[in-house]
Amino acid sequence: MQMDDSRIAMKEKLEFVGIIKEALKIPIKNPKFFFTILLTFFPLFCSLCLHETMFQRALIESLRSQADDPPPHEGFVIIYRSSWPSPSLHAFRDWIGNFISRKLLVQSFTFLAIIHLFDLLNTIITVSTASAIYAQEKETLTKPFIENKVALFKGPLITSIYALLLNSLALVGLFTLSINIYLMWSIFSTLTYMLVFVALFTKYIEWSAVWNTGIVISILEQNKHGDVALGVSAYISRGSRKRGFLIMLVFFAWSFGLRLSSLCVGWQKGNVVIEVILAQACLDCLGSVMKWVAFMIYFYDCKKRFIEKKFDGSAEGKA
């Protein structure tokens, strides 16, 4: 499963566009790749459909209930602009509380846990299969999954939990900043929070690329997982963060755009549209597959550049 250094050295160094092109070549030139991925595609697809249906229906109903209720005080907009009115803050807190309590928070987290496991399984198979194709290995593509299932799943699971915790902390920070931006009455305060939000979001996208590369490392190099895999990812990706940032930004925009489009259709129709949810889940799964193929190629490219720098540094030291 691990591409040796000689094969890495034979690969051409790639920029962002080159990585995307190489990622697209793998499914186009290898129909067996999609057949292998479909083995685990269906459970992830179903769990995504159920979760998105439940979440979007809850969000749309909650937003509509707030839109139908008139403001508690006449001239609310004028008051809001001139001071920080406590009714708006209380209303916002009540909305969050009602939304969470009414829509079964426990079930939502259960679905998210199931989705995470199915997504991880799909990621392992995608990265392993795409890596075998990219390295032009001749063995059967499904062989790695038969030999040592426990070892193959354990390392990526540990790394993905680390990445999930870090990702959750970053999202909590972004969500908190967005609330402050919404509630601020001063232009200066709003602009300040917006600048901090943009800075944190930029770092979040960059960090997400490092975390995803760490998961790829834990799949392809089974002796590295958890904080070790994330540390190796951060180390070898130095000097290549811009390409990782662009890869992550493209696929983040893809997923966010699909979800936003689905919500807009549901808002216009008054409820979620099952056909739209199905299309969103299908395209989201497709985007996830291509994202992991791209990050697999990105990892090998980072490793190639790191090895070249290492050898160049050794040669200069001996000289």
Score class of each variant (00 low, 15 high):
Trp207Met: 07
Leu183His: 05
Ile215Val: 14
Ile217Glu: 03
Lys149Asp: 02
Thr202Ser: 10
Gly214Ser: 09
Val150Ala: 09
Ile205Ser: 02
Leu152Lys: 08
Leu230Ala: 09
Phe251Tyr: 15
Ile161Leu: 13
Ile247His: 02
Ala199Cys: 11
Val228Leu: 08
Ala163Leu: 06
Leu152Met: 12
Ile215Phe: 06
Phe153Glu: 10
Lys149Met: 09
His225Ser: 14
Asn148Ala: 14
Leu141Thr: 09
Lys154Trp: 12
Asn167Cys: 11
Ser160Thr: 07
Thr176Ala: 15
Met248Val: 00
Leu169Cys: 09
Trp185Gln: 11
Ala151Asp: 14
Ala234Gln: 10
Asp227Ser: 13
Tyr162Ala: 13
Tyr182Asp: 02
Met248Asp: 06
Lys203Tyr: 14
Ala229Pro: 04
Val150Gly: 01
Lys224Ala: 14
Arg238Phe: 08
Leu200Asn: 07
Ile236His: 08
Val250Glu: 11
Gly231Gln: 00
Leu152Val: 02
Leu200Arg: 05
Thr142Gln: 14
Met194Tyr: 04
Ile158Glu: 09
Gly244Leu: 04
Phe188His: 12
Val210Tyr: 06
Asp227Cys: 05
Trp185Thr: 08
Gly173Gln: 09
Tyr235Met: 03
Gly226Cys: 03
Leu166Ile: 12
Val172Asp: 03
Glu221Thr: 06
Gly214Pro: 12
Gly155Glu: 12
Ser186Thr: 11
Met194Gly: 10
Leu220Pro: 03
Asn148Ser: 15
Arg241Gly: 09
Ser240Tyr: 10
Gly231Asn: 02
Arg243Glu: 12
Phe197Asp: 01
Gln222Ser: 09
Glu206Lys: 11
Leu195His: 07
Leu191Ala: 14
Leu169Ser: 11
His225Gly: 04
Val198Ala: 14
Val228His: 11
Leu141Asn: 07
Ser178Asn: 14
Ile247Gln: 01
Val232Trp: 00
